[in-house]
Design a protein around this nucleic acid. Structure first.
Lengths: 285, 285
DNA sequence: TTCGATTTGTTCGTATGTATT
DNA sequence: TAATACATACGAACAAATCGA
């Protein structure tokens, strides 16, 4: 859930935003302390300063203050606004960049990451050919329904049972073969007015749709995989014989502050494809 | 997920990234430049200074200069040795810490990560109960053989066909039930004198054994998952009925410099357990 | 094309805080 | 208590990329 009390519809300029944050932050004494003076050990700093800055930037992102694809204010500007050194700003942004939430570009600025870029796609899409080839999936909408949330939705999405949800069935094709069947559930409260056409006529990925049209920025996913025999209906859709094993994935997608926004149950035909879990090649190779 | 309008030529960000890193390796001349002198901007430094430092620290680790569990020299000492500022040293170490290769402890020092700590175990072990519970597996050695490398070993481990390998079959039990069957292959060249007793009488994890006894530090793994019917023999070992689906995992474990050291084919009984892929909860939550 | 302003990237140095021994 | 080591924060200077005049 969004921790900020600021409605996303409202727009504040940065200064106003910063002051408001100063007012409503509980750790205000830290930030309000005169940084220009020598750092008095009065602090009681439960958290270091860069975490406070990071938290406030994250809150601004969650509040939709800076839209995906847009630049956030420059480091020097943020340093002035928050009254901290530019090094502290960089430190705060570092982790957001590492978490693919922000993207830095030398000479241009720092931007809110979008789901429209190639490299972010394979951060969330892990199906590759058994020969190791990475292909872009072709998406086909199979069905769209509006229903009431069940127990599973309640536990995975943190919404109350009986609230309204949209369920989308989507088929992904790789190299002409059906490979992934997704059953997607989202709350229609968060995605107000979502309908079949929204999905059908979208450009790009589903997470790109969430981001561009609803301001919901998926920044992290958690997946649980197992092997099972899919129901006959699903086996057919995936072009599988009955009694052939498939991989089942249950995914929860999160936006800022670990707030769950989408629950997705998938079946994967692993005849020619597999799930790649590559625990990050860091630069420390 | 995506309409495949993008040419396949743009696919490989990872590849591009890896290549850049390779270039880094080939920039040895830079690293060989006398760091003891004042840093002349003459360098042709394609890579920044902190990368050079990082590379040299990594090389020292790979050379077994500092053993797992031991402290590396202090930041101030390293700064003197390399004749760079302490900030540059910290920057170089940052990524190694993020990659779980080093561990910092305030007031104590910076240590080479070991596979004996609880928290590092679940970095490489992803099987959890379907209720989300994380248990410590009990390991049982089923067989040990020495053979010649086949084509699979050649491609996965980068060793020549016909060279000597050791093959270990290992069963992992969780909460009293057999869940994971591992078929492990390593080169006896890298693990000289390895035998059945080495595995049987080890303390702790297998990667802990590699680390403590052979100085081989596994720092990264890459896994490819699919669903299949296991052979009857394996189904029996896992307490599964025939024709019941299981998850198959092919894992390559790497040490420093992306050098492969172990190839492991696993079967998972996903009746009560599943594979957890949790793309890092960063502190930026 | 050149130039200058802006923005991020790198490196240095210093001071101080905090945890460990 | 003192010394050591990592953690945080500040600031300065310059490099490199970008963009528009």
């Amino acid at each position: 859930m969004l921790t900020s009390a600021i409605p996303a519809s409202q727009l504040y300029d940065l200064y106003e935003f910063a002051t408001r944050m100063l007012d409503c932050t509980s750790l205000q004494k830290v930030a309000a302390a005169p940084m220009t003076d020598t750092l008095t050990p009065s602090t009681l700093t439960a958290a270091p300063l860069y975490r406070e800055v990071q938290l406030r930037i994250t809150r601004a992102l969650a509040a939709g203050h800076w839209k995906p694809g847009e630049a956030i204010p420059s480091e020097s500007r943020l340093a002035r606004e928050f009254n901290v050194s530019i090094g502290t700003i960089r430190r705060a942004i570092d982790e957001l960049v590492a978490g693919r939430i922000l993207v830095r570009q030398q000479g241009r600025g720092t931007f809110v990451a979008t789901h429209t870029e190639d490299r972010t796609l394979f951060y969330f899409f892990h199906i590759v050919g058994k020969d190791g080839s990475q292909e872009f999936p072709v998406s086909e909408l199979l069905s769209f329904r509006k229903e009431r949330a069940d127990a599973g939705d309640e536990s995975q999405l943190g919404i109350t049972r009986g609230s309204r949800v949209a369920r989308v069935r989507n088929l992904l094709t790789l190299a002409g073969k059906p490979v992934v069947l997704d059953d997607i559930t989202v709350s229609t409260e968060r995605f107000a007015g979502i309908d079949e056409d929204t999905f059908r006529k979208r450009q790009g990925t589903i997470y790109g749709l969430y981001q561009a049209r609803y301001g919901v920025n998926v920044v992290r996913i958690s997946e649980r995989l197992s092997a099972a025999h899919p129901p006959a209906e699903i086996a057919t859709l995936l072009g599988m014989r009955v009694n052939q094993p498939a991989m089942q994935i249950r995914r929860v997608a999160y936006t800022y502050n670990d707030s769950p926004v989408e629950y997705r149950q998938s079946w994967i035909n692993t005849a020619d494809h597999e799930y790649l879990s590559d625990l990050w090649k860091t630069a420390a190779s």
